[in-house]
């Protein structure tokens, strides 16, 4: 939030106190900055701000989960309880959506959920010197994750059922006359899964952060140009929006993980429904 103020204030003061538009860009927060230019086999593998935020998020989560079980007690303390709750939350999610046969894939679902959740939540917190950045507001990142899930569950399905996996596109109990149409719809819906999965997360994250930046610019713009009290109105909205965004950060991570479980379940139980 501070960062949105700073960038908005920067834009406002650049205009000499007169916000004429064009000076402030709410999309500026999504720009990739290369910290260490690296080239690998002809590809640009520079260490960027996105890379750094991913390192921070994953390090925090790993440290939290490891420290939560350090000196684990029979009756858990607060930290240990939180670690156990996150474990059981995802374990129940996998068990309910993919059954016990889905439990071998629990670690990857847990990793996906924690990865997205930590990046979503960390995007809400500005770090001094780094500013604020949400890795999951980049379509290429969410698409890569969704494609990974899509390819993974498809391979699991083919490995488990061979050609029987194609039964997924032929639902049982459908009249023969409707079968060609239904199959086409099923195939289209199957192949649009990675798109819907990635766009849902990316769009939610980008929209929320853009909206926060716009409201941040209102706070500074009204506060500087109209009066300090006038800036308070969008500030109240911003506080409320922050709460909403934290909810969405959690919800989108949950939705991504649940849908991954459902796709996994489809692959594991293809032909049995």
């Amino acid at each position: 939030m501070i960062d949105w103020f700073i960038s908005a204030a920067h834009a406002a003061t650049q205009d000499g106190g007169h916000h004429g538009g064009g000076g402030f860009d709410p999309m500026h927060q999504f720009v990739i900055n290369r910290y260490t230019p690296i080239e690998l086999f002809g590809y640009d593998a520079s260490f960027t701000n996105a890379s750094l935020w991913m390192v921070i998020a994953t390090t925090l989560v790993t440290a939290f989960l490891v420290f939560s079980t350090a000196g684990a007690k029979l009756v858990p303390g607060r930290l240990q309880s939180l670690g156990e709750i996150s474990y059981e939350f995802v374990a129940n999610m996998v068990r309910q959506n993919a059954g016990t046969s889905g439990m071998p894939y629990f670690p990857i679902i847990f990793t996906l959920f924690m990865f997205i959740l930590s990046l979503n939540l960390l995007g809400m917190i500005p770090i001094p010197g780094l500013g604020q950045f949400t890795v999951t507001s980049h379509i290429i990142v969410t698409f890569a994750l969704a494609a990974f899930v899509f390819v993974g569950v498809t391979l699991i399905g083919i490995f488990k059922h061979g050609f029987g996996f194609l039964k997924l596109f032929v639902p049982s109990g459908v009249p023969i006359a409707l079968l060609p149409l239904i199959s086409v719809i099923e195939i289209i819906s199957y192949f649009t899964r990675p798109i819907s999965l990635s766009v849902r997360l990316f769009a939610n994250m980008m929209a929320g952060h853009t909206m926060l930046a716009v409201f941040g610019s209102f706070v500074v713009g009204l506060g500087v140009n109209v009066g300090l009290a006038a800036g308070g109105v969008p500030l109240i909205f911003m506080v409320l929006l922050m709460g909403l965004e934290i909810l969405i950060a959690f919800l989108q991570a949950y939705v991504f993980a649940v849908l991954s479980c459902i796709y996994l379940s489809d692959s594991l139980h293809a032909g049995s429904h």
Binding site: F47, T48, V61, Y87, F110, A144
Partner: peptide
């Protein structure tokens, strides 16, 4: 390219850390 490369590296390391250490 840098996004995908670092996502792959960090996600893999994260998966190993969680599945081998934390979980």
């Amino acid at each position: 390219a840098p996004q995908l490369i670092w996502l792959a590296i960090i996600f893999t390391l994260f998966y190993i850390a969680l599945s081998r250490l934390a979980l």
